[in-house]
Structure formats: C-alpha cells, structure tokens
Amino acid sequence: MGLMDGSYSYADLVRKYDQFRVPVGRLKIDGKELGDGVGVESISASLSLEKASAVSFRVVGAYDRKSSGFRSSVKSTLKLGSTVSLSLGYGSSLTEVFQGYISGVGVDFSDDPVLEVTAMDVRGLMMEGTSRNEVHVVTTYSAAFQAVMERYKVLCTKLSVDATDADEITQIAQTTSDYEFVNSVLARRANREFFVLADTAYFREKGKVTAPIVTLDWGEGLMTFSRSSLYQNLKITVIGFDPENKEAVKAQVEEKADEAQKAVGAAHETVITDPDAQEEKKARKRAEKEALERKRRAQSGSLSCVGLPELVPGRFVAVKGLDPDLDLDYYIQEVRHELNGGGFSTTLEIGGWDG
C-alpha cells in the first residue's frame, strides 16, 4: 500500500510507531544527510493539494566561532537548487513525504547562529517559469501533461496518470506558465487533479480513492476539530455542441453546501460554455466537477492529531465520537507537519464532505 491508496486502523499505527515515542525527521540534501555535529532544530512541512508544497528547517551547530564563519562543508551542501527529501515517522519507521529543491537560504544571528532553509516542490519551479508559446501535438490531455512534466524529471522522477479519452484533441496551445497550463487548462478540461507528493506528480481523477486513510476518534488520536459551512444554493449548467449531429448539448447539476439547509429563494444559476462538451456525458461530468469544487470552497475546517506521515492531501480522513452529524469522511486539502522540541504533530485543512 502507498500513501495514495493505503488505509490503516489507528491501533495499527500506534503499534507500528511504538506508541509514538521517538519522533524522527530525516532530511537528505542531494541524496546525503547533513554531516556529524550538525543538527536540525525544527522541521515544518506544508503539503498542499492546490499550491506548491514547502518545507522549512533550521540548521544548528554549523557555525565555527573560532573562525567566525559557517562551515564550508555545510555551505557547499545547502546551496540554492540542491534537491531535498524529507521522511517522517518514529524510530526506524519512516515515510518520505516531500521531495523538492532548496528555494531559499537565510541566516539568523539573534542567538546561536543558525541557517534557515526553505524548500519547495516542483510546482514552485513550474510557477516561477515564464509564459510559454508553444503547441503540443497530442491526442489526449494526459499526453500533454506528460510532455510538460518531462521538463522536470530531475525533481519528479515518477508520474501517476489517469489517462484521458483518446482522440479528444489533435493539438493544444500553451500560452501560460507550465503550472497554469497544467492546473488551469489540462486538469480543468480533463476533470483531473494535479498535485505532487514526494517524488510523484499526479494527474488523477478527482477524489479517486474514497476510502479514508484512517479513522480518528475524539479523545483518541483526534486532538482538535473545527468546521464551518457557508450558504450555497447553486444550479450549474454546462452547454456544449455535438458536431456530428450539429446540435447543442446541455447538462445541469444542482448543489448545496449542506443538504439540511433551507432554500432562500431560487437557486443561483451559473452557465458555462465548454467547447470540449461534445456529448451530454462530458457536459454532465464538467457540471458535476464545477459543483463539487464550489461545494468544497463553501465547506472548510481543520483538525489536529499526533504526527502521522500517512495523512496526505487528496485523500479522506474519517472522524468519530463528535456528533452524529459531524462523524463523517473529510477531504484533505492541506497537511502541516511540525517536528520540534515539543514533539511531532499534524494539522489538516479539510474541505468537502457529505452530510
């Protein structure tokens, strides 16, 4: 089982990690750990579904007071652009949760001199790139995605792609940055999620794995929980054109943020014209995708628990023991891991649930 398809019981994780007794974070720079005598004071990792994931850490013990300078071996290791991987866990049971590149290095002389390092995943590099003007001669959106990601294989060594329909296009023009093109054009048109986890870039059907990673009980695993919903009463209409029969196609989906809410007036209708919706099935898929995205934007919340590297964006987590209306599966939008002198904790930003 991997991070994107594994499911666990909380009791199994307690046993696996020996009661969560010895939290460990292992950083590697260009495939190597930092040298002896150099330590990492704290590690913060933010893993996101919708933006570049980032890791920051503080390096201590690298300053030589006799020579009044940081060790040359450390400075030569922590160079901008060096690759970074982070594995988290307990004892010898570690899981890689991040792979990227050093995007920033700073110093802090307020107390003992430390080096402050920030790393971002491949999406940071894709966002910084200038707009491109090129045409991808491909027959599927998934093939266009693979062509773009070929440029980043140093950071993203693996691709996990849910193939899209064959012969849906003959070519597609790119006039934006690689990130905007993949995230706002390819993923949107193909009804896919684009995100990165560790060394793998995903171009995946939305909410593909519905089984929750783990169930967290209030008072056992689940430390804090909050959520809120905004009123939403929508009607999403997608209109396309069937070139074979030379007629318009149409699909309509209604969506509420909360099924228990009372309707205040008529539903607000949004009409979307989609040139790719050449049959009712495609128009409906686009309407359902838009409705789901808007529902998730109207639902938000957070929860915290003991540090669990198994919790990743793009999966569901279940909670129990709160209230019958709250004991549901929640979609994970963002994960924040914190490892410092106070231990290892995980906080989730959630959005999207049924009930």
Rank of each mutant, 00 (worst) to 15 (best):
M4W: 05
M4S: 04
M4G: 00
M4F: 07
G6E: 14
G6K: 01
S7N: 13
S7K: 09
Y8L: 08
Y8Q: 06
S9C: 02
Y10K: 08
Y10A: 03
A11L: 13
D12T: 10
D12M: 09
D12W: 11
L13C: 05
V14T: 14
V14S: 08
R15E: 14
R15C: 02
R15A: 13
R15W: 03
R15P: 00
K16Y: 12
K16V: 12
K16F: 12
K16T: 15
K16G: 10
K16I: 14
Y17A: 06
Y17E: 12
Q19P: 00
Q19A: 15
F20T: 05
F20H: 09
F20Q: 11
F20P: 06
R21M: 13
R21K: 13
V22W: 07
V22M: 08
V22T: 14
V22F: 07
V22P: 00
P23Q: 03
P23F: 09
V24P: 02
V24Q: 10
V24M: 08
G25T: 02
G25R: 06
R26A: 07
R26D: 02
L27N: 03
L27I: 15
L27Q: 06
I29P: 01
I29C: 04
I29M: 04
D30T: 03
D30K: 00
G31F: 04
G31C: 08
G31V: 07
K32F: 10
K32G: 02
K32I: 07
K32P: 01
K32M: 13
E33T: 13
E33F: 02
E33P: 10
L34G: 08
L34Q: 06
L34S: 10
G35Q: 12
D36G: 09
D36F: 06
D36A: 14
D36E: 13
G37K: 05
G37D: 09
G37E: 10
G39H: 04
V40H: 02
E41R: 09
E41Y: 08
E41Q: 11
E41P: 00
E41K: 07
S42P: 01
S42H: 05
I43T: 10
I43L: 15
S44I: 09
A45E: 12
A45S: 15
L47P: 02
L47M: 07
L47G: 01
L47I: 15
S48E: 13
S48Q: 12
S48P: 00
L49T: 00
L49G: 04
L49S: 05
E50V: 08
